[in-house]
Computed example of a mutant assay.
Amino acid sequence: MSRLAESPKREAALRSASAVGWVTLPIGLALVAAPARIGRVLALGDHPAALRAIGALDLALVPGLLVGRHRRPWLVARVALNLGIAAYCAGLVRSERSKGAMVGVAAMVAASVADSRTIADLGDG
């Protein structure tokens, strides 16, 4: 399907995928560059290696989200990553009673729901 013939719903989904990429970029950079500080700010405890890994994975998704020819697989990967992050945060809630991690679970689930809607709107392209 040519760019000119794309539906308004699909065009909005492509813009949403790009927005996700632009949001993911600074988050990934911050987690890679200053994981201990971000962990303190977000009340996630002292887990710099895990936060740095999450940031690196976020950054790996950014090019596909921003300029990938097919955005759908990149968003699917982001949903999978976010659900993994939610599971990690749930573990922190159980082991450390981390309130920041509780917020993280909710944020990752909400982002996954929003991304899933975008995936559906992108269709097969």
Results as ranks from 00 to 15, higher is better:
Gly123Pro: 12
Asp124Leu: 12
Val23Asn: 05
Val113Trp: 08
Ser7Gln: 08
Ala30Cys: 13
Ser2Trp: 00
Ala34Lys: 14
Arg3Ile: 15
Leu29Cys: 10
Ala17Val: 00
Val41Phe: 08
Ala49Gly: 10
Ile119Asn: 07
Val62Asn: 01
Asp46Asn: 13
Ala49Glu: 13
Gly125Tyr: 15
Leu81Phe: 06
Met102His: 12
Ser7Thr: 06
Ala50Val: 08
Thr24Cys: 09
Arg72His: 11
Gly64Trp: 07
Gly55Thr: 10
Ala77Leu: 13
Leu51Cys: 10
Ala106Val: 10
Ala43Lys: 14
Ser98Thr: 13
Glu96Gln: 08
Ala77Gln: 07
Ala60Arg: 04
Leu92Tyr: 09
Leu61Lys: 09
Leu44Met: 01
Leu4Arg: 09
Gly84Ala: 08
Asp121Ala: 14
Ala50Lys: 03
Leu92Asn: 05
Glu11Ser: 09
Pro26Trp: 01
Val76Gly: 12
Gly68Thr: 15
Lys99Leu: 15
Arg10Asn: 05
Cys89Thr: 07
Arg37His: 14
Gly84His: 06
Leu65Ser: 01
Arg40Ala: 15
Asp58Met: 15
Glu11Met: 12
Gly28Leu: 03
Ala49Asn: 11
Ala17Lys: 07
Arg71Met: 10
Gly28Ser: 03
Ile85Asn: 02
Ala17Asn: 04
Thr118Glu: 04
Val79Ala: 01
Ala36Leu: 12
Met102Glu: 15
Leu65Gln: 04
Ala111Arg: 00
Arg10Gln: 04
Val20Tyr: 08
Pro35Gly: 09
Ile38Glu: 10
Ser95Cys: 11
Leu59Thr: 11
Arg78Gly: 08
Ser98Glu: 04
Leu57Asp: 13
Asp115Asn: 09
Leu51Pro: 02
Ile38Asp: 06
Arg15Glu: 14
